[in-house]
């Protein structure tokens, strides 16, 4: 059981000593029980830190934002930034380190282990609370305890946990400067890739029926891309809303910029966008599940990424975010890579 007071003391101490420029963590939001990202610059703000089942954000995204602000302002990084990181978040940081997005000494990882549970899935919880609003959520052994207007409601965590947490094989942030909570690596609440296997059990026709419906619903709000720490390109090749023009960009470059897809949220364009993203995340996505959670129309984007992750693991023995020095999936190969499909 993580003692929140230890985390707050550590954060206050680091800020007071100036060891870190800032601490990125979670604090109580203004939206009922849900925590929100917090950016602490001063020691006295450390008491805002919380750790509960609604701390589902992957905060490594804000390390990317910080790096971009520094680059844009032309400043050197100086002291590192501290970040509260779960197992999946820490693996995202490892992939970012693997891609040299920042140096290891630019980030001070305050690891928090999910131990036997994980984070709550808002949609699953809503089915249990049927209309009631929770004002607080707390870990309690293998249960989550929700405070509602009708009093406390205790639920087995397994029933309202996010799929990624149920399938999570290593809830412990291996890469850390400091870590809190028991290491329950290897725990298995549900078989890995369980959601994917359930989906893949359907025939191709049925799978297409489902995906066609999902792709039609996509409104191209780019929440899946904006919330993903791995989607850090200044210009997303597949879509034009992030075309970084500079004074050097010539008229021809602007006129001849390749438009891979149209601006319309039509099914064919949404497919090309979502599939290109899934390909660009192959071997990089650490299944933090934020794209699934952020999507306002419930497109199961995580399935696309976990499909790539499963193939990478089964066929190429590749685990994303396993080691900082490791090669990246699509820039490396093995002699025994599968080739029978090639005629």
């Amino acid at each position: 059981m993580i003692n929140l007071k230890d985390v707050r003391d550590a954060a206050r101490d680091m800020l007071a000593k100036g060891e870190v420029r800032a601490v990125i963590g979670y604090r109580r939001g203004s939206r009922g029980m849900f925590a929100e990202p917090a950016f602490l610059d001063r020691p006295e703000e450390a008491d805002e830190l919380v750790w509960d089942p609604t701390c589902f954000h992957n905060l490594s995204l804000y390390l990317v934002h910080d790096r971009k602000h520094l680059a844009h302002a032309g400043k050197k990084s100086g002291a590192p930034v501290a970040i509260v990181a779960k197992g999946c978040d820490a693996r995202s940081i490892v992939v970012l380190l693997q891609e040299h997005y920042f140096g290891r000494d630019d980030v001070y990882i305050i690891g928090v282990s999910c131990e036997g549970t994980g984070v709550v899935d808002e949609r699953k919880l809503a089915r249990h609370l049927n209309g009631a609003q929770a004002s607080n959520a707390a870990f309690d052994g293998d249960d989550f305890v929700f405070t509602t207007a009708q009093g406390e409601k205790r639920l087995p965590a397994r029933e309202v946990m996010a799929d990624r947490c149920l399938e999570c094989r290593n809830p412990f942030p291996k890469e850390h400067n400091l870590v809190y909570g028991e290491d329950k690596t290897g725990r298995q609440l549900e078989a890995p890739f369980a959601a994917l296997d359930r989906f893949e059990a359907q025939g191709a026709g049925e799978r297409w029926e489902n995906w066609a419906r999902h792709f039609d619903r996509c409104i191209r709000c780019f929440a899946c891309r904006s919330v993903c720490p791995m989607c850090y390109c200044d210009e997303c090749v597949v879509d034009s809303i992030t075309f970084p023009i500079s004074t050097e960009t010539t008229a021809d470059e602007k006129a001849n910029r390749i438009r891979w897809i149209e601006r319309s949220a039509a099914r064919s364009e949404n497919i090309t966008y979502l599939m290109t993203r899934a390909m660009h995340l192959a071997g990089r996505c650490t299944d933090c599940g934020e794209c699934d959670r952020a999507c306002p129309v419930n497109v199961p984007i995580r399935l696309l990424n976990t499909k790539m992750e499963k193939e990478a693991r089964d066929q190429f023995g590749f685990e994303p975010g396993a080691s900082i020095g490791g090669p990246s999936l699509v820039a490396s190969f093995l002699d025994k890579d599968p080739g029978e499909f090639i005629r």
């Binding site: 990202p37 409104i219 191209r220 709000c221 929440a223 919330v227 306002p296």
Partner: peptide, 13 residues
């Protein structure tokens, strides 16, 4: 807006 990720949910909906 420090936590804002610049997506389009709030306006599209």
């Amino acid at each position: 807006a420090r936590a804002c990720i610049g997506c389009g949910i709030c306006t599209f909906l």
